[in-house]
Simulated scan of single mutants.
Amino acid sequence: MARRPTDYRAAAEAMFKPKAPKAEPEAKPAATNEVPKGREMVALRIDRDVLAHFQEEGPGWQDRINAALRKAAGL
Rank of each mutant, 00 (worst) to 15 (best):
P25S: 05
Q62H: 12
P25G: 03
P29A: 03
E57F: 13
T6H: 08
M15V: 07
E13R: 09
K19R: 15
A20K: 15
Y8I: 00
R45G: 01
A27M: 01
E24F: 01
F16R: 13
Q55A: 13
P18D: 09
F16E: 01
P59C: 06
E24D: 09
L44S: 05
P29R: 06
K19N: 08
D63R: 13
G60M: 07
E13F: 00
T6C: 07
K19E: 07
P25E: 10
E13Q: 08
M41C: 06
T32L: 04
E57D: 14
W61C: 13
E34Q: 09
P25H: 02
R45N: 02
A11E: 12
K19S: 12
A43P: 06
G38A: 05
A30Y: 01
T6S: 11
E40S: 04
E13I: 06
A11N: 12
E34W: 03
A10G: 02
F16D: 07
P25L: 05
E57P: 07
G60N: 11
E57T: 15
K37T: 09
P59N: 13
V42C: 10
P29D: 02
A43G: 12
F16G: 07
D47V: 12
E40G: 01
D49K: 11
P21L: 05
R45D: 05
P59T: 15
T32R: 04
A10P: 04
A52K: 10
K22E: 07
K22R: 08
A27H: 00
H53C: 10
A20C: 08
G58V: 15
A23R: 14
P59E: 13
V50W: 00
P59K: 15
Q55D: 10
E40A: 03
Q62A: 12
A43M: 14
V50I: 15
T6A: 13
D47S: 15
P21N: 10
P21F: 03
P29Q: 03
T32P: 00
E24S: 10
N33V: 01
K19F: 00
E56S: 15
P29K: 09
Q62E: 12
A23F: 09
A30W: 00
E13K: 10
E57I: 12
P59L: 11
T32Q: 04
D7W: 03
P59A: 15
V35Y: 08
A12W: 05
H53S: 13
V50S: 03
E13H: 06
A52P: 05
